[in-house]
Write a protein that binds this DNA or RNA. Structure first.
Lengths: 141, 141
DNA sequence: TATTGTTATACTCTATAACTATA
DNA sequence: TATAGTTATAGAGTATAACAATA
């Protein structure tokens, strides 16, 4: 690096800024969700399953990048809270679907996440805004 | 959400895509750094301190968003590896600086991170690329 | 009084291996 | 043979409280 361009922070590095931005924004969302006793993974599962009744634990894990073994405590927590139920597909697999209470809670989750996503986009200056999601998606293969 | 626009993934949500993109990219960098027995936090400390000799552990933590208490094992690891040394500023504070071995290792770290940052930017289509860092920075207050 | 460095501790998320039962 | 669900476990990151010594 050119010594003259030395930065006392590392925020000029896109990778570093990407990590920091994700941490800042996810920290905010995590705080809002924790007020309704949900974690980020809980809300993600609920949004993903929403009105579907054909997703297994493994399916959800693939979509959310959570390994099978790590889905166990997530689903156990949601089931314990009465937000999801399991319905046998065959004798090996079970579909994860929201309970009626889960459907009601999902409406609250959507309130929070819709507001969150809007606030996120509104923080980005208008001229950069339309490029943000496409740029992110290009990084996810 | 409009049922017709229902997505089987959550990648249409900028916040979700932000988290995923950060996880994907940081996973790649973490893997490359681990081949040289460094963690992300190790490399961040080394890049930040680089040729400075006036940063305390607390200063570094503020810059990297790592709490004082959590800096202890990071610096202990770097010191154990012979990459940093501590120089008393007064009887309370100590400056963290690279050892000669740390300076040599930093050159390797820069090779990896420079290549990584270039690859990251090159994955983003040219028309979106100049908007990426400004958008990220707008999210970090 | 505030700050530095530290210890101890707990919680969350993530990663791996192994097992049973079923497709 | 491969997959689903699970258990157990370890690693890594992060958060809080508390303490002694010093600014």
């Amino acid at each position: 690096m050119d010594p003259a361009s030395a930065d006392e922070s590392l925020l000029h590095l896109p990778g570093f800024a990407l990590r920091r931005a994700a941490n800042v924004m996810m920290g905010k969302l995590t705080a809002q969700l924790s007020e309704m006793n949900l974690r980020l993974s809980d809300a993600s599962v609920m949004l993903l399953v929403s009105d579907r009744n054909d997703m297994t634990s493994a399916d959800i894990g693939k979509e959310l990048d959570i390994q099978r073994a790590n889905m166990v405590p997530v689903l156990a927590r949601l089931e314990e809270a009465g937000l999801i139920q399991r319905e046998p597909i065959d004798r090996k697999s079970q579909a994860i679907m929201l309970t009626p209470a889960g459907v009601r809670k999902l409406a609250q989750v959507r309130d929070v996440t819709d507001r969150f996503e809007n606030e996120l986009l509104n923080r980005i200056p208008a001229k950069h805004r339309p490029h943000f999601l496409p740029a992110l998606l290009s990084l996810i293969q």
